[in-house]
Design a protein around this nucleic acid. Structure first.
Lengths: 94, 94
DNA sequence: AATTTTGGTTTATTTTATAAACTACTTTAT
DNA sequence: ATAAAGTAGTTTATAAAATAAACCAAAATT
């Protein structure tokens, strides 16, 4: 029987964000936007969801005079990501 | 930059169905239902979508007096599945 | 012969993803 | 100095998807 895939991670954009965050550890909003090719609005919404789930931590500061949003994956986020990947393997192994 | 994930395959249920079909080559509706733990309605809808995309072939016959729906992955389906897995690797490789 | 079960389909509802519009401020050009 | 354009986002509206609920037709069971 196939395992459940965490719906919060089974979304192209959120998975992309998490995929980046798991390797870089912290990333700025604009960097995520570039890398994922998504619109700012979409990123904003998905970051909120990941944050509310406790998968990432969002910090709002300023770079000079401009707002700066920085994201960092949490322990829970790493765990969830790894569990998701493990479950996913079931689906894609030959 | 992250690659696109075929939205038709990036769905838990459709991916599960394709994952089964790629290994067994043909499967009955009820078998898919059991293995995926999904409702009949949901399976019915998702099979139609996969079929319309040409990823699977659906055959309707009878087993004795009862209707029997049999599914088989197509060449295009195999190709799409493999492309999806390749793209996905980008997201989940450490 | 009524009730339940099987094998589905269709329709309705909820959830999700995405895009469009907007806010607040900064930088650049006039 | 001020209007126009750009940056960094958020909020709201719309479209698309997933899922569940309701339904149908025939078969099997009590």
């Amino acid at each position: 029987m196939l395992r459940e895939l965490d719906p919060l991670l089974h979304s192209q954009l959120r998975l992309g964000i998490m995929s980046i965050l798991i390797s870089v550890e912290t990333a700025e909003f604009t960097y995520l936007k570039e890398q994922t090719n998504a619109t700012a609005g979409n990123i904003s919404v998905q970051l909120d969801k990941l944050s509310e789930a406790g998968y990432i931590k969002i910090e709002k500061t300023f770079k000079g005079k401009k707002p700066l949003t920085t994201c960092k994956i949490t322990k829970a986020g790493i765990k969830a990501f790894e569990a998701y990947v493990a479950a996913l393997q079931q689906y894609i192994k030959k």
